[in-house]
Measured scan of single mutants.
Amino acid sequence: MMAYMNPGPHYSVNALALSGPSVDLMHQAVPYPSAPRKQRRERTTFTRSQLEELEALFAKTQYPDVYAREEVALKINLPESRVQVWFKNRRAKCRQQRQQQKQQQQPPGGQAKARPAKRKAGTSPRPSTDVCPDPLGISDSYSPPLPGPSGSPTTAVATVSIWSPASESPLPEAQRAGLVASGPSLTSAPYAMTYAPASAFCSSPSAYGSPSSYFSGLDPYLSPMVPQLGGPALSPLSGPSVGPSLAQSPTSLSGQSYGAYSPVDSLEFKDPTGTWKFTYNPMDPLDYKDQSAWKFQIL
C-alpha cells in the first residue's frame, strides 16, 4: 500500500520538471525561470610600474599592434585584453584634452560664430520673369535699313540677281523696263511654242516681248482663266512685280493683265486636223540634229 502513496517519478516537459499528477507549474501565473544575472567585471587597478610601461608604449604609438600589447601584458602581468581596453580609454582621454585646449585658446566670443544676415524675399530687387527677354536684342539694338529709291541700282540687283547668272552684270533701268511683257505680243502666236536658250531668258530683255519668248507657250493655258476669275487675268510678269519692288498687295496686282481676252486664246483648236509644230532653235543647249523629232501629229 505504501508504494502507491509515494509520488511517481519526475517528468520533464519543455525542460520543466513536473512532479506526478501536479500540474501547477503549467499555470499561467507561474513564470518561467529567468537567466542568472551576469556579474559585473571588477575594475582593474594599475600600479605605478604598470602605468609607466603603458605610458611609455603610448608615447611611441597610440595604436599598438597585438604583438606589442602581448609583450607589455607579459611585463606588467596583466591579460592582453586589459591592455587593449586601457589604450582605448587613453585615446579617448587624449582627444578630450585636445578639445579642452582648443576651447581655452579661443576667445569668449569666438564660440558663437556670427551668422550672415538672411536676406528677406521682398527687399532684394530681383529681375521680373513675367516678360520673356528678347534673345536677339531686336527691340533695343536692331534698326531696319532704310528703303532705297525705287530706281536705285541696288534694288535692281536684289531683284534680278536671283534669276540671272553670276557672270552677267546687273540690268540697267532701261533693260528692266523691257522685262514687262506686252499683251499683244504674248497673244499673237498662241499655238507656236519656241524653246529659246537659257541665257536669253536671263539677259535678253527682248525675249519677253517677242513671239518667240519663253513664256509665249504658256499663254494658251493662262488666258482661259479670265472668265472664271470674273475680271482681268493676273500676270506674273506684269508691271512692277518684276520691277523695283516685289512687295505689292494682291489688290494692286488684280488690275494688271496680259491684255484683252480673245477667243483665239482658248485651248480649242480651230482646225482639228492641224498639227502643233515646235520651232527648233539652233541655240538650244539640247543638241538634236534631227528636226523631225520636234513634229508630232495630233490624233
Rank of each mutant, 00 (worst) to 15 (best):
P145M: 05
P224D: 02
G148E: 05
R48Y: 08
A260K: 09
S199G: 10
S238G: 05
Y63W: 15
A207N: 03
L25I: 06
S12E: 06
G239F: 15
V83T: 13
S12F: 12
P21D: 02
S199T: 04
W276L: 02
Q99E: 03
D24F: 14
L136H: 07
A166N: 01
G183W: 12
A121G: 05
R91Q: 14
T275D: 00
S49A: 09
K270H: 09
W163K: 02
P133W: 09
V72G: 13
L237H: 02
Q101P: 11
Q84P: 11
A73M: 13
P64G: 13
Y67R: 07
L51T: 11
Q105V: 05
Q103L: 06
P9R: 12
S266A: 08
D219L: 15
Y221G: 01
G8S: 09
M5G: 00
T251A: 08
V160M: 00
C94S: 12
D219A: 11
P116S: 08
G239E: 02
S238Y: 11
T194S: 03
P33S: 08
P9M: 07
L222K: 03
R43G: 15
A156M: 13
I298R: 00
P144T: 04
I162F: 05
W163V: 03
G217F: 11
A15P: 04
I298F: 02
L179C: 04
E55H: 06
Q291S: 08
P236S: 06
V160G: 00
Q50D: 14
P116M: 04
R69M: 12
P153C: 11
K120S: 05
P31G: 05
G122F: 07
D24R: 13
F87E: 13
E173L: 11
S252P: 07
P244T: 04
G148P: 04
S204D: 04
Q96L: 06
S124F: 07
S212Q: 06
R69C: 12
T275M: 04
M2N: 00
Y4P: 00
T44N: 13
V264K: 10
Q50E: 12
P172R: 12
L16K: 00
G122H: 10
D130F: 07
P165N: 01
L146Q: 05
P282W: 13
T61E: 03
P211E: 00
T159N: 02
K295C: 12
S143V: 05
S34C: 06
T159Y: 13
L246D: 01
K289W: 11
A192W: 14
Q101S: 12
Y208G: 01
S245Q: 05
Q39D: 09
Q96V: 06
D265I: 15
S249C: 03
L57W: 10
M225R: 11
E70I: 08
S254Q: 05
L136T: 05
V226W: 13
Y4C: 03
P263S: 07
S128F: 04
Y4Q: 00
S241K: 12
